[in-house]
Simulated assay, not measured.
Amino acid sequence: MQNEMNVPAWRKSSRCGTSTCVEVAKVNDQYLIRDSKDPEAAPLSFDQSEWDAFVEGVAAGEFRF
Rank of each mutant, 00 (worst) to 15 (best):
W10A: 00
T20H: 09
W51M: 06
N28K: 09
R64N: 15
E23M: 07
W10P: 01
R15S: 08
A42I: 08
E23F: 07
D29W: 08
L32M: 04
K37V: 05
Y31W: 12
R15I: 14
D47W: 02
V27E: 00
S45I: 01
R34E: 01
G17W: 00
V24K: 02
D35Y: 07
D29L: 13
G17T: 02
V55A: 13
R11C: 09
I33E: 04
L44I: 05
F54I: 05
R15H: 13
A41M: 15
C21G: 07
D38G: 13
F65N: 13
Q48G: 14
F63L: 08
R15D: 10
W10L: 03
T18L: 10
R34Q: 00
A59M: 12
F54W: 03
K26T: 13
S49K: 12
N28W: 13
F63E: 03
E56T: 10
A41I: 08
I33N: 04
F63G: 02
P39E: 06
G61M: 02
Y31E: 09
A60M: 02
I33H: 05
S19A: 12
G57T: 02
S49P: 10
N6T: 14
L32S: 00
D35A: 07
S36Y: 04
E50D: 08
F65V: 10
Q48I: 11
D38N: 10
K12F: 07
F46E: 00
V24R: 04
S49I: 11
G57I: 00
T18H: 14
E23H: 06
M5Y: 14
E62K: 12
S14W: 10
A25R: 01
